[in-house]
Each structure stands twice: as structure tokens, then as C-alpha cells.
Design a protein around this nucleic acid. Structure first.
Length: 618
DNA sequence: CCCCCCCC
């Protein structure tokens, strides 16, 4: 390979001249914080003769730096350039570039470039003119030859020979950092990681390691893994993309302590982690990972939680990732099923957790963890990074990235053990599982339908409950009835096996019969507005004044069914509704469910109106 | 740069 730097290009450009697709070596870069997170990178570029820091990376190329595409010593060809004189200073903006050689492959500074002296230039005067001075314009002159093979500088770096990285580095010996600056040896507390310190190193224990995942989307594809890192100041997630996966994935072991030097940092997206850090970090091209077997690594903690007590999960945002420590009060059976959306065969087990707030919540375990969980001794369970779901009240679900510890040796666990054995096991608990037909919204306010249908979506995240006096305006007859599993508590739709049997996916059983169930969609209105709401079984039966097992067979008989609907419309009720924000086809929409439906008690209703009038008159 | 993580 023979790459030549465009000797003299820096001087030409500084004088306002043009150079076609100059080849430079990057000697360094500096992040310049811009408004609104619009950071820019200033590059120190060299043509082998001169170096200068007048080059800016176009923001659309910013990603090349954290991605490690552009790194120190790398050689680039600037495919598109804009040269501008800005208040006596010349600025070069690189709009597009090709990396001809990665920094690690080059390993050294080429030639002996000297900082281009500003006064040599004629920046301001040459905005529109300045034909290049022929003598130093071109890239045809032989330049310094990059020493591609010169230096095994990758010895401790991701792009080098990773296997040797972890095996050969002497521990406890800073000499193992040979080739790195002294400043690289200084570790900072994880707590202090920010995107603004590129020289940082941290010494941390790996508390969790993900599987390698691949992705493919409009922006491209690749693979990645992440590890959770902990020291005595805090924790942070570190992600490795593509080459970092090849270099480090197999070598990094959970529970081991390493010094990680050089990484990039960016704000952590709290939606995907329970780790207590404002930022998350990524492997870069010259990240090094050195194991620490020294005794003082014992002082680095092995786990860290920010527990949320179960009672507080009730008001916790949906999809949030949290840590919980609780007693496993009971466990359900393993339930195998096929996901309708992904067609994947899944196994789950639900366990019920309770803590000293006397509140219980269901945690769903998946796959092998679900199968393996057979502890019936009411163990204390600590989980890190479980997802809060608002399905049927509130529940928790294990994620791939979640960590579970059974009877961990931490104070909270011992306290819970004592509490449960002496007291907790006999105390009545409140469940965050929503009871059908009630649960939540006990004090649902009276609203006109109009007020409720324009409820602030954020307050409907976990269900907004209200009461209204309403009249049924219309009923949808299609799909009002379905054939359901005959099991007592299972109302899952069954599939016709076409052999006289009916299959329930939920129970994983075939039954000789089924039961009819109702899901009635009806339009409820008052003088202000109307809404479509779902009436499940009992409410549907009340609306149609018929039992579902009678309605089922009638469903086929158009006239009889229409007659029933005709009788049902224009009846009035007092109803309790739930308005809940749901995502449907990637769109938010308010979904209404009838929670209670009662014939109007006119005496009570008149009292309510009277009270309202008095309140408004006073 | 991922961010999917499942089922009712």
C-alpha cells in the first residue's frame, strides 16, 4: 500500500488556494461544544510538512469520531472541502472524506510536520481569489511513506491482537501501559465520566455482560454488546460495536475488574437502563482493556442497586427500568406459548413479590430462568433492571439485561427475611394486579364525556377513570362474540381444530367444547360528546339484556340479533370508564373500557346534581 | 451506531 500525503496542501489552502481531494493525516481532534448539543470537532490535520487545527469536521460526519472511524494517526482523503475566511482566520470544513488508513494501522505521525504559522497565510484577503500557487498545490510530490508495519501499537488496543491483550499484560504494573501517556494511567471515578474528557480511564468491575446482538435498519447494520461497569463511585453501561465485539467480547468476563482507557461518552437513554449514570460510554478504536488482579480490586463492589419499594411502583412510569428487592411469596407454573406477533415459542413463569410496604406485584421470568426457578422457600430476590409494565395494573418483567440474585448477602435482603418470617407472611397485602371491574379509579370523578375524551394523554398513560351518565347511541354487532376456552378462569379465544375439539393456546389444551364470551363495542354519549367503549362479558350482557351463551348461537341469525341490539340502544346508564393511552399502529390513541355499568338511580343522581348546583351557586 | 426483550 502506498499512500501519499498531499505535501504542501495545508499551506496552499491557508493561502486561500484550492487543492483537489487532499490527503491528510489526522493528528488530533477536539470537541467544541455547540448550542443545543450541536457539538463540532476541530481536527488537527497534517500534510506531512505542515499541521494545522483550522479544519472542522462537518457535523454530519461527527459520528465518525465516537465510532472510531476517524482516530489519531488515521489518513483521510478530503473528498469535499469548503475553505472560508472568517474574521481574519481561515477555516476549512471537511464535508466528505474517505478514511484511507485507520490510525492503528498507521500507528505513528508521518513525517515531521510543523505547525503552520498563521501569519504566513493571507486568509482574509483571499476569500474569492487566490488561485493555487502551482508549486505547492498538488499532491503529486512524493510524500512521506506511512509506516504501516512499523509498530505493533495495538498490543493493548482493541484493534490489535486482542487475545494477547488480556493474557500478556502484567498486572499491578504500570509498565504494561507502555506506549501510552502517563495520563492514561490515571483512573477517574465512574461517577465523574462526562463526554468532555477523552483521556479518561476507569477501573471497574464488570457486573453484567449482554449477549451479542445484531441490528439492521435504515442507518445500516452491525453488531454490538454491552457491559455494566461498577466502581465504588457509581456504575455505567459500556457498549462495544462491530470491531469491539470481535476484539473484546470473549475476553471480558463478568465479575472481573479491568482498567478501561479511552472511550467516548454520551447521554444515557434512561428508557433502556436502570443504571444510575447520566452518561453511557462506548468502546472506541483505541480503547484498551487491562485486567486487574491486584488485591485492591477487592475493594470494588460486586453489585449495586437502587431499590424501589413495591408500593411506589404503582405510580411508576410505564416501561421504566427499576431495581427491586422483595420476598418471593409464591410462584406460578411454567407456561409455554407461541407469540402471535413474533411467532416465537416462549416460556414464562410469574412469581409474586412482596416487600415491607405490604404490597405485592407479579414479576415475569422468561425462558430458562423461568424453567429453573423452582424455589419454594420464599427466597428474597433482588432484581436489577426489570421493566415496569402497566398491563392489568402494574407488573414487572425480566429483560435480557436484567440481573437476578436469589438470597443476596445484602442488608436489605436480611431485613426482608426477618420481616417476612416474623410478620410479613401473615399480613394482608395490597396487590398491584388490577382487579377486574374495579381496581384503580375508586374515586373516579364525574365528567361530561367531552371533558373525558379530551383528557391530557399523559394522565391516561396508566388509565384515567371517570364516571358519566350516558346513553347508548350505537352498538357494533360484528365480532361481538367469540368462542372462548371453557376453563373456569381462562377466557382465551379457542381455535377450531376441525375435529370437534377446540384448542386453547393459553392452557395448551384441546377441549371438546367452548363457551361464548362477549366483547361488545358500544357508543356512549351525553349532551357533550360520545365515545366508543369496550364492554366485556358482564357489561355486554347487561347492555344486551341477554346471556352470552344465548347470544352466541343467535349471532348467526341476523334478525334475532338485530332485534336485541335495537332494544339495547338509547338506554341510559351511569358508567365508570377507563380511558387509557394505547399504542396502535405506532400511534397513540385513547382506548375506553367500561369498568362499571349501572341503571340510573334517579334519586342518587338527582342528589349529585343538587350538590353540584349548590357548589356552583355558593 | 442499539434501544428488540416476548403473553395476556
Amino acid at each position: 500500500m502506498d499512500i501519499k500525503l498531499s505535501t504542501g496542501a495545508v499551506a496552499t489552502l491557508m493561502k486561500g488556494g484550492e487543492v483537489d481531494k487532499p490527503v491528510f493525516q489526522i493528528l488530533g481532534f477536539k470537541k467544541i461544544a455547540g448550542q443545543g448539543g450541536n457539538d463540532r470537532f476541530r481536527l488537527n490535520i497534517s500534510d506531512g510538512l505542515h499541521s494545522h487545527t483550522f479544519a472542522m469536521l462537518a457535523t454530519q460526519l461527527n459520528h465518525m469520531i465516537p465510532e472510531g472511524e476517524l482516530d489519531n494517526n488515521c489518513i483521510i482523503r478530503a473528498e469535499k472541502l469548503i475553505s472560508n475566511a472568517v474574521s481574519e482566520k481561515r477555516v476549512l470544513i471537511i464535508l466528505d472524506l474517505t478514511v484511507l488508513a485507520k490510525g492503528n494501522a498507521v500507528g505513528v505521525k508521518l513525517g515531521n510536520p510543523v505547525q503552520y504559522a498563521e501569519q504566513n497565510g493571507n486568509a482574509a484577503g483571499a476569500v474569492n481569489g487566490g488561485k493555487p500557487n502551482g508549486s505547492d498545490q498538488t499532491d503529486t510530490k512524493p510524500a512521506v511513506k506511512p509506516e504501516f508495519t512499523a509498530k505493533p501499537s495495538g498490543a493493548f488496543y482493541g484493534q490489535g491482537k486482542p487475545t494477547s491483550v488480556l493474557k500478556t499484560s502484567p498486572h499491578k504494573n504500570n509498565a504494561s501501559f507502555s506506549g501510552m501517556n502517563a495520563s492514561d494511567c490515571v483512573t477517574i471515578p465512574i461517577r465523574d465520566i462526562t463526554p468532555y474528557g477523552s483521556k479518561s480511564a476507569i477501573k471497574a468491575r464488570v457486573t453484567n455482560k449482554s449477549v451479542v446482538r445484531t441490528w439492521s435498519n435504515s442507518r445500516g447494520d452491525g453488531k454490538l454488546f454491552s457491559i455494566d461497569l461498577l466502581d465504588d463511585s457509581g456504575e455505567v453501561r459500556m457498549t462495544g460495536f462491530n470491531t469491539a465485539v470481535d476484539a473484546f467480547y470473549d475476553l471480558i468476563k463478568v465479575n472481573e475488574v479491568y482498567t478501561f482507557s479511552k472511550f467516548s461518552a454520551k447521554p444515557a437513554n434512561k428508557q433502556f437502563t436502570s443504571l444510575n449514570h447520566e452518561y453511557e460510554i462506548s468502546f472506541v478504536n483505541d480503547t484498551s482493556v487491562i485486567p486487574c488482579m491486584d488485591t485492591d480490586s477487592d475493594s470494588i463492589p460486586t453489585l449495586s442497586f437502587q431499590f424501589m419499594e413495591i408500593a411506589f411502583i404503582e405510580s411508576c412510569e410505564n416501561n421504566k427500568m427499576i431495581d427491586v428487592v422483595a420476598v418471593c411469596k409464591s410462584r406460578g407454573d411454567v407456561h409455554a406459548f407461541t407469540s402471535k406477533t413474533t411467532n416465537k415459542d416462549l416460556k414464562k413463569r410469574e412469581v409474586t413479590l412482596v416487600d415491607r410496604t405490604n404490597t405485592e406485584i407479579v414479576l415475569t421470568l422468561w425462558g430458562k430462568q423461568a424453567e429453573d426457578f423452582e424455589d419454594d422457600t420464599n427466597p428474597v430476590i433482588a432484581v436489577k433492571g426489570v421493566k415496569v409494565s402497566d398491563f392489568g395494573g402494574k407488573s414487572l418483567s425480566m429483560m435480557n439485561s436484567s440481573v437476578m440474585m436469589i438470597n443476596p448477602d445484602i442488608p436489605e435482603a436480611h431485613i426482608l427475611r426477618g420481616w417476612y418470617d416474623n410478620e410479613g407472611m401473615n399480613v394482608p397485602t395490597k396487590s398491584l394486579v388490577q382487579q377486574r371491574g374495579s381496581g384503580g379509579g375508586a374515586n373516579a370523578p364525574w365528567k361530561m364525556v367531552r371533558e373525558a375524551s379530551t383528557v391530557d394523554p399523559s394522565s391516561a398513560e396508566s388509565g384515567y377513570y371517570f364516571r358519566s351518565k350516558v346513553t347508548i347511541l350505537a352498538i357494533k354487532r360484528e365480532n361481538a362474540l367469540y368462542k372462548a376456552c371453557p376453563e373456569e378462569r381462562c377466557n382465551k379465544k379457542v381455535m377450531d381444530c376441525n375435529n370437534g375439539m377446540w384448542r386453547c393456546e393459553k392452557c395448551n389444551k384441546e377441549h371438546p367444547d367452548f363457551k361464548w364470551r362477549l366483547i361488545l363495542h358500544a357508543c356512549f354519549g351525553d349532551s357533550s360528546d360520545s365515545i366508543w367503549a369496550t364492554c366485556f362479558q358482564e357489561h355486554g350482557e347487561l347492555v344486551l339484556d341477554s346471556k352470552s351463551d344465548v347470544l352466541g348461537p343467535l349471532n348467526e341469525e341476523q334478525d334475532a340479533f338485530d332485534g336485541i341490539i335495537k332494544k339495547a340502544v338509547f338506554k341510559s346508564y351511569t358508567a365508570k370508564f377507563r380511558a387509557k393511552m394505547e399504542v396502535y399502529n405506532n400511534e397513540n390513541r385513547l382506548k375506553y373500557t367500561v369498568m362499571e355499568l349501572n341503571p340510573i338511580n334517579y334519586g342518587e343522581y338527582a342528589q349529585k346534581l343538587l350538590a353540584e348546583i349548590k357548589e356552583n351557586v355558593a
